[in-house]
Design a protein around this nucleic acid. Sequence first.
RNA 1: GCCGGAGUAGCUCAGUUGGUGAGAGCACGCGUCUCAUAAGCGCGGGGUCGGCGGUUCGAAUCCGCCCUCCGGCACCA
Length: 677
Amino acid sequence: MAAVSRFYITTPIYYINAEPHLGHAYTTMVADAVARAHRLLGDDVFFLTGTDEHGQKVERAAQKAGLSPEAFADHIARKFHDLLPALNISNDDFIRTTEPRHHAAAQELWRQVRDRGFIYKDKYEGWYCTVDEIFVPETQLVAGRCGICGNPVERIAEESYFFRLSRFEQPLLDHYRAHPDFVTPAGRRNEVLTFLEGGLEDLSISRTSFTWGIPVPDDPAHVMYVWFDALTNYMTAAGYGVSQPAAAARFARYWPADVHLIGKEIVRQHAIYWPAFLLAAGLPLPRQIVSHGWWLMEGAKMSKSKGNVVRPHEYVDRFGLDAVRYFVFREMVFGQDASFGDEAILTRYNSDLANDLGNLVSRTTTMAHRYCDGVVPSADRELLARPPERELSSAVGALVVKVKAAVASFQSSTALRDIWEVIGATNRYIVTREPWQLAKSPDRRAELDAALYAAADALRVIAELIRPFMPATGERTLRMLGVEPEAASWTSLRPGTLEPGTTLGELAALFPRIEHTVEELRAMAADTNDVSPAPGSQGASTSVSSAAASAGAAGSATTGTVAATTAAADRISIDDFMKVELRVARVLSAEPVPKSSKLLKLQVDTGADQRTIVAGIAESYEPAALVGRTIVVVTNLKPAKLMGVESNGMVLAASPEGGKALLLSFDVAPVPGTRVR
RNA sequence: GCCGGAGUAGCUCAGUUGGUGAGAGCACGCGUCUCAUAAGCGCGGGGUCGGCGGUUCGAAUCCGCCCUCCGGCACCA
């Protein structure tokens, strides 16, 4: 870590169209650990997180819930906000994009970029298909008609402000060349470079189709496109856009940020758009964009439809916060995806936390109490100079250096692995010296004291190094050793500095072993949820719909009505359904579509005719296995061209999120042409 | 099809610029201490380092081809 005395780190601001899950929690916990490490190093840290609350999605979700966008945003933002204390997050500020300070900052950035000539108003112009309600790219036009439905297209233009992103291709490439670590890990950086080299097009940065956003300066019919708005938050919180001297001084001190920590799905916005906006405004760029991988649930992608979204609370309740923090830091290798799972956590808990660390703390402090009257013994210098003591001490000294380096490069798994290696070394050291034997011979008092001092001293450094990852555990351990946790304790941290003679604190087991199987734990969790929904947690997990209901009950008849009519409006009539002609068909032949990995070209017999249908099921079915199979197709669909092949209809299949498509089939095959309804 | 990542003990993974007989943790078996959370410590079994070929005195590590898995893109009527 460089000798920078101030350190500014951010998480993304979280978009409030979904409830917080493990992914949000993880990003925030990593930022927290890094922020804490820098504070321990004596840095002046500014750690920011918050919520992204504008946009059409939020506007619609609010409408659906029968709430104003403001009320809806307040409701969900609170959940993100309340997650922080539960995870022991040490953020210095929490920003919401709906706050006045942010509106002011985003508008200021807009003006600054505009006044330097990088924003222009133009028409978002293109060929528009009124049937499909989309803009059809030039390349997909077929003889002047929509390549999708075959209907004529119209030339349509919608007003929008554009950012001259195309001007920044070369400046960005230059910056990347000058700062090889601007984006890490390297794989992500390469992706960005590839994208850059492919050329940049100007970016549409305003919308007129909705109003839930920050108005464009001097043209309030437009609201800012979400990324221009959202990314600016990193400067808002540092004091940008406020003319008061205090805020200006703060901005001068904290900007540019040292680290924007993000998930790999938003690399492009942070690695291209954001630096381009800043270059356009003539402002300094953040020092580093650091992106991490995704959490999988038992090896599978998390999704709502699978019902395997991890809610951090459940695991914190079951294992304790520091155990969850330890697990995610230890398990996820920097930059890669990692798998979350009950069994894995349980193993980590019992092996690493209970057996290794917890038991080491327990045996060390217990012996100090029993043999040394509850104070840190003082050790004879020569006894500490013997090989086992020197070896332990130098391992501890090397550990301090290694952990500092690992934290600087976000390698939490490496840091913890190294720390646990020294925990093992300390356990081995204790066995080597056998203090319980020394205690039997009064004439070996000095050796006993030296042994317990050496163990306690090593444990003290371990506890200090653990603090960023497991703050409560680190501090409790220090107190048990009679050390008062200090803010900047890493600056002078080294072995041999534990103060002799101090009284040990009260002892308690850090991580009692969990003698239950995974199944038992799950059953216990289920019981808790079913039998006694804790009053507190019920409040915390109130769904949006019930919030809407209570808003209605509170006297706002209109909001309740809105919700009801919206729901009713989503229904369709039987006539609407009957417009879709579904018929039984038989597959006559099937072959892959060249150059495509998802598409199969099918010849089917619909009873009335034989036709070609292209279906996106190549990843689930072998062509040969489909021949002769009886399926269901939509027969009255307009033709569409896919990868150059015209498709006259659509096959029906269940499509699980992230899973393989499953074709509809019958108990007994009806004849082709039979109507399905 | 294109781009990227990965394929090392039953499981999860380390293995820097090619060089002591290929490692750790978990799990398993045996032994041992008793300060400690039935924890600790020691020993052990088990791997054609995805496959084939090449460079080299020597490759898990470099090169080529191939196979498999996972992302992203094209694409999902």
